[in-house]
């Protein structure tokens, strides 16, 4: 194996591969935000909601945790979203794009996982916090918003950054429906240059860098919003 050839091929491919970062970042940000927006209310419902709603959340979580993302990508792209975008009023707004399908399936799956992260965090708070808030005359909604979630979301950051790193790598599956993110670019350039190994290295390094940046950023956030008295070793 001629390393200089491989190295040059890798170097020349870099701009094209980096062009996929925008798509990957878009997938991650979209999916994390979708997962967060759905995951928090799902968790709150699962902890505080009435029994029938709790059941429904449990079913939702089982469904999305149980079906592989690859299968969901196909269902959303070729099935659900293709059908939705054929409905009157929903055509031509990009519902049938591969990107939308990928954000939907990654985001919904992530919402199931994220809801369990937040549920754990909420349940780790002492029950007295909610009691004290209620005793002051707060409604449950007020108590959850100003007392429970500010604490629970802080506690959830380490697990949430884990979810980020998992989702980042799951996002590589989006190439299968034609999102031109990093993985898709790696495959196409590997087949034209016949340098699959060096191209995999480049893709791997880019994914690693994205993971590092995201996790590092979340660690900084975790330290910045840490509650006084809660050290790295736990509550004093």
């Amino acid at each position: 194996m001629d390393f200089s050839v491989a190295f040059n091929a890798a170097r020349e491919s870099l701009p094209y591969m980096l062009g996929g970062v925008g798509w990957t970042a878009g997938l991650i940000i979209g999916a994390m935000l979708l997962g967060l927006t759905l995951g928090v209310p799902l968790a709150v419902t699962q902890v505080y909601g009435p029994r029938p709603l709790r059941r429904m959340v449990a079913v939702y979580v089982w469904l999305f945790r149980g079906i592989p993302i690859l299968v969901q990508l196909y269902i959303f792209y070729f099935g659900l979203l293709a059908w939705l975008s054929s409905l009157p009023g929903l055509t031509g707004i990009g519902l049938d794009s591969p990107f939308t399908a990928a954000v939907a399936s990654l985001g919904l799956t992530s919402s199931a996982y994220q809801s369990q992260i937040f549920r754990g965090a909420i349940q780790s708070l002492p029950a007295g916090q909610l009691k004290a808030a209620r005793a002051l005359g707060m409604t449950d909604a007020q108590a959850i918003r100003s007392i429970i979630l500010p604490q629970a979301l802080r506690l959830a950051i380490p697990a949430w950054s884990n979810e980020y790193s998992i989702l980042l790598k799951d996002s590589a599956l989006a190439f299968t429906i034609g999102v031109v993110e990093i993985m898709a670019r790696m495959r196409s350039i590997a087949s034209t240059t016949h340098e699959p190994v060096s191209m995999s290295f480049v893709a791997g390094i880019i994914f690693f860098a994205l993971t590092w940046i995201g996790v590092k950023g979340l660690t900084l956030l975790e330290n910045k919003v840490r509650i006084a008295g809660y050290t790295r070793q736990g509550a004093v």
């Binding site: 916090q129 009691k131 004290a132 808030a133 005793a135 007392i147 500010p150 604490q151 809660y230």
Partner: peptide, 12 residues
């Protein structure tokens, strides 16, 4: 008004 044995101050 309610005062609890273990205070239940909001930690954050």
């Amino acid at each position: 008004g309610m005062i609890f044995q273990d205070f239940n101050l909001f930690d954050h």
